[in-house]
Amino acid sequence: MSTATLPTRRDEAWRYADMDAVARLGVVALDQWQTINVAAGESVTRCMIVGSDAPELHRFRVSLGEGAKAAFFVTNRGGDYTRVDLEIRLAKGAHFEFGGVTIGGGSATREFVTQVIHAEPDATSNQTVRAVHWGTGTGNFLGEIKVARHAQKTDAAQDFKALLLEAGASANAVPQLEIFADDVKCAHGATVGELDEAARFYMMARGVDPATAQRLLVQAFIGDAFVSLDDEAERETLLDAALSALEGARL
């Protein structure tokens, strides 16, 4: 896709995007990539809270040197279309970790789109995405893993789970694997479900009010996305930002 023109739904990476919001962003926004180069043996961690009442597009190109590590942890709670794009290239023995949460109601689309390229042997990657939506909100995860022919001993995983709190909400997961090496481990999983009403009833029967019961169940559900984040303060900030989206929601 050339950024000289706006994408369309025929572009795989934009299949579920809010195209009206993309048009409001304009073609200039599509070229605004942030480039991060992580030197051999070095480590980078980014924690982000994204989303507002206007469309947002956050795009990153990350190149990892030999044995380098990069981790992104993101809470996406946009009130309008909010998208985070990650393009990752891994050298030998490098590791990439991604934990993301999309959460919210209204009619907004919130999405993560990742492309992880295992260019050399012995690299690993892990992506954990959780989506919680209500109203007519939508949570998307489009994740592509590419393994080069000589990138043996690759170990790559994706895990997407969505929790829909109302019937009008939706979630889309599109895992894509392009593997040319033969000695690899590549796994992906995707599930979409509803809140465990039995668990909520159990908590309410023991004196927990409905809003608190719901918050605790959602917190347990989304916590997996940030379990690999060692910084406890940052982890709590990301969780609180996600859970604050529940406040005032009539569910």
Rank of each mutant, 00 (worst) to 15 (best):
E247T: 13
E232H: 08
A156H: 03
P55K: 02
V28K: 15
G168Q: 14
A245D: 12
R206N: 01
A68C: 02
T3I: 11
A187Y: 10
T138N: 07
K161N: 14
C186N: 04
V184Q: 12
I179T: 08
A198C: 00
I222M: 06
H58L: 10
P121C: 10
L164V: 11
A156E: 04
V227I: 14
I36Y: 11
G137A: 03
E12Y: 02
M204G: 01
V129I: 14
K69L: 15
A40P: 12
G248C: 03
E66S: 13
D224I: 06
R130K: 13
N172V: 09
H95Q: 15
L164F: 06
L64I: 07
A40L: 08
H133A: 07
I179H: 06
Q32H: 11
H95L: 13
Q158H: 12
P210M: 03
F221Q: 03
V129G: 05
R61V: 13
D80H: 05
F160S: 11
G65V: 09
A123W: 00
G137W: 07
T102H: 11
Q158C: 08
G135T: 03
A94M: 04
T136R: 12
K69I: 05
V132R: 02
Q214C: 02
Q34S: 14
D196N: 13
E111D: 14
V84S: 13
A173Y: 11
E166H: 06
A211Q: 13
N76T: 13
A54C: 09
L251H: 07
T8L: 13
F221L: 11
F226W: 14
H58I: 12
T82S: 14
R61L: 09
A245W: 08
A171R: 10
I88E: 06
Y202H: 00
G41W: 10
V113L: 02
L6T: 13
A17D: 03
G78Q: 09
R61I: 08
R83A: 05
G135L: 10
A241I: 08
S170P: 06
T45D: 05
A162P: 04
Y16L: 06
D159G: 11
A17P: 04
D85G: 10
G26W: 00
W33V: 01
G139V: 03
F201W: 12
V132I: 01
L229R: 07
L163K: 02
V116R: 10
H133R: 06
G168M: 11
G139S: 05
A39D: 08
E144N: 15
A119G: 03
F201C: 00
R15D: 06
A39G: 04
A71Q: 15
L217Q: 13
V113I: 14
A213F: 00
D11K: 07
T75K: 04
Q176G: 02
G67V: 12
Y202S: 00
A13Q: 08
Q219C: 05
Q32P: 03
E120C: 04
L64V: 11
E56Q: 15
G168P: 09
V74H: 09
A39H: 01
A68P: 10
A190C: 06
D31R: 15
A40M: 06
I103E: 02
G135I: 01
D85T: 03
G193W: 05
R235A: 05
E97Q: 09
A91N: 14
G67C: 10
V74G: 08
G78P: 10
N126R: 14
C47W: 07
L195S: 01
A167R: 15
A54F: 05
L90F: 11
I88W: 09
V50D: 01
G65S: 09
N140Y: 02
A70L: 07
Q127V: 14
G137L: 03
L246K: 04
